[in-house]
Design a binder for these strands. Structure first.
Lengths: 116, 116
DNA sequence: TCCATATTTCTATAATTCCAGAAATATAGA
DNA sequence: TCTATATTTCTGGAATTATAGAAATATGGA
């Protein structure tokens, strides 16, 4: 991941409305949610919602597909994973014990996480 | 972590200069770096650097201490960990296999990550 | 005390982002 | 085709953020 992409993703998330949408999508899982339902749940006007969803999609954090009259959005977990890896790259220059609180799956090896 | 705090942290990181500083601090480890050296490494004016460091500190992502004439900044790994946990809360509503790419130490149990 | 170094604060301008209203587009069904 | 629903695009003004220059503050040493 490039710094430019990371800034785009972080900027997309650095907004209460979009952060709410993204977390909602994370919870919703890979099936995603129709835009209309997101708007209802988050209490957002359709136009504001649409531009915020577009910003998340542009940043690579959300993916959309059409289903009849609805457009379904879902979180892109791989993009999120890349972002986290970028943030923590070369953490502590090789002192695993200290950077322990944060770990990506790639580093976790054969771990079996309790959830997610 | 509250949504407000998460937005503050994400906003702090959503800036090329500050993201560079933060990643530099992550690499540097718990000893941190003096502001002047960060400025030299990142090619930033002292005043710009100072306000950006203040924004990172205000967001809880960096911590400072004085050492003689220098002020040493270090990344706050716990704050980062909280942020990641907040972003991924209730991921996939209970389908661990799918949210796998992203995992926080709290979820990883007794794992021994390869690095950090 | 005086000076040099390190960092922060103040200030003004430039640039960007946010949001609501209105209009436009796409799809499904009568 | 006509109508209703779902979503997006366009637009303008308000609010926020970014940046550099200049001045101020803090510390250590002569």
């Amino acid at each position: 991941m490039e710094q430019t992409d990371a800034v785009a993703a972080l900027s997309a998330l650095a907004h209460p409305g979009r952060l709410g949408i993204f977390r909602r999508l994370v919870k919703a899982g890979p099936e995603g949610l129709p835009a209309g339902e997101i708007g209802r749940l988050e209490g957002m006007l359709a136009n504001t919602l649409s531009s915020n969803l577009a910003i998340l999609a542009q940043a690579g954090l959300a993916v959309s597909r059409r289903d009849g009259r609805s457009i379904i959005y879902r979180a892109d977990y791989e993009a999120m994973s890349s972002l986290l890896a970028f943030l923590m790259e070369d953490c502590c220059g090789g002192e695993p014990a200290i950077c322990g609180p944060v770990v990506t799956r790639a580093d976790a090896g054969a771990c079996a996480p309790r959830r997610c």
